[in-house]
């Protein structure tokens, strides 16, 4: 099996990262936005693993574990916030959430 070259993987990671970022920017549903953020974090994870493998250094993989945990926590909190928001606002559309401005 020919190993995929590192730059290709990295580009792929970057692509995923920016797709996530684009999702944050474009999608109007907060749940999808949260998923996009997860996507960004996972792109980072992939990057780290790639570097870890390329440099033959375990630090990167170790970091990934932390990030997975944190991402999970973050999602949990995010979902909690979304529920609270839905209770009062009856919507999860970001365009509807513009009380605070100016």
């Amino acid at each position: 099996m020919i190993p995929v070259p590192v730059p290709v993987i990295l580009s792929f990671c970057a692509a995923i990262f920016f797709i996530g970022l684009a999702g944050v920017l474009i999608r109007r549903n907060i749940l999808v936005v949260i998923m996009s953020i997860e996507l960004m974090l996972n792109a980072v994870n992939l990057t780290l693993v790639t570097f870890s493998a390329a440099l033959d250094h375990p630090h990167g993989q170790m970091a990934v574990f932390f990030i997975i945990v944190v991402a999970a926590v973050e999602s949990a909190v995010g979902l909690g916030l979304v529920i609270a928001l839905f209770r009062t606002m009856r919507t999860v559309d970001t365009d509807q959430i513009q009380l605070l401005k100016g």
Binding site: V24, G78, L81, L99
Partner: peptide
């Protein structure tokens, strides 16, 4: 407060 929380979060 909810809005602020979610904005900050995202």
């Amino acid at each position: 407060s909810n809005e602020a929380g979610i904005k900050y979060y995202i």
